[in-house]
Amino acid sequence: MTRPRPDSPTLFELPVRPDFTLEREAMRDGRLPVAGTDEAGRGPLAGPVVAAAVILDPDSIPDGLDDSKRLDAGARERVFADILSHAVAVSFASVSALSIDAADIRKASLEAMRRSVATLCVQPLMVLADGRDVPPGLICLGRAIVKGDQRSQSIAAASIVAKVVRDRMMARAGACDLRYGFEVHMGYATERHRTAISAHGPASRLHRLSFAPFRLAEPVG
């Protein structure tokens, strides 16, 4: 199967903040509604990868939409609330650490994106997906957008939803298991996290044993 050719901008072509240009192009082609999808959590040592899909209302786009990595936690929470209040449809899905280990993080991320699109309450006619790959099995036409969360407001909205939802999941995991500090580092490979892993080993069902430093070591606890 031939990989869809991504829409790859140069550094100087990126807008200062994402806009609605790509969505309006799709709308002019008769592909309305347009959904954006993105994931959060590809890099951590623990927790699920979470994806979201968002269909924005062209007449009521929330202020402050941007790549979730360029917003602090407070700003993400504020924009997240606005997205839920004003979007036509919002959905999210996750793929667990166990499933990540059974496949790989790329496939798991794409599957989470597919699931998030499939569970939207409004079916899109076009999906703009962050990255180099269109998630396999979409219910409609898809387009891969490199650095999409910095170009498309729909993808930026999805990136914010995915990040906020995943952070809340990891905060809950931290409250249930006090050994690792998940609520602080969200599963990323910080010094505190690595020190806790050295002391306690990996947590069952939470740590990704296919990632270094585990390499399929036996979980404990």
Rank of each mutant, 00 (worst) to 15 (best):
V54D: 02
A175L: 14
H200K: 03
M126E: 15
A157W: 05
R78C: 00
P33D: 01
M113K: 11
M169W: 11
Q123P: 05
D177M: 09
Y188G: 10
D72I: 06
V122G: 05
R208Q: 08
G137C: 03
P4Y: 11
G142S: 10
S154C: 14
D130E: 05
L14W: 03
A52D: 07
R194D: 08
A189P: 13
D59G: 11
K69T: 12
R168W: 12
M126K: 11
G137E: 04
S210G: 12
L14N: 10
D57Q: 07
P4N: 09
A189S: 13
S60G: 01
V117D: 11
A26Q: 07
L178H: 15
K69D: 14
A103L: 10
F20M: 11
P124W: 01
T190D: 09
R78Q: 15
V49S: 08
P124C: 03
R166I: 09
A87N: 06
A158M: 05
M126A: 10
E39I: 02
T190C: 05
K69G: 08
K69H: 07
F80A: 07
R78L: 06
D177P: 11
F211S: 08
D29W: 07
G47D: 01
F12M: 13
P33N: 04
F214Y: 14
V88S: 06
A35T: 06
P48T: 08
D29H: 01
Y180E: 07
E25C: 06
I197D: 00
A203Q: 15
K107Q: 15
R5W: 01
R78I: 03
A26V: 00
L45Q: 03
V34F: 04
K107G: 00
I83T: 05
S198I: 02
E218V: 13
P62D: 04
Q150V: 04
G43F: 05
D72G: 11
R166C: 06
R70V: 12
I160E: 06
L138W: 03
L11Q: 14
M1F: 11
Y180A: 12
R42E: 09
A175K: 14
S91C: 09
F182E: 04
V49H: 04
P48K: 12
E183C: 12
R172H: 10
F214M: 10
L178F: 06
A53E: 00
H86N: 09
G36N: 01
A175F: 09
A52S: 14
L14R: 15
L45C: 05
R114C: 12
T2W: 09
I83C: 00
R114H: 08
P219R: 12
D130M: 01
G181C: 12
V165N: 04
V50T: 13
R192H: 13
S91L: 04
D66M: 03
L56M: 02
L14T: 11
A40F: 08
D82L: 09
A35L: 03
R31V: 00
A103S: 15
L32N: 09
T190A: 06
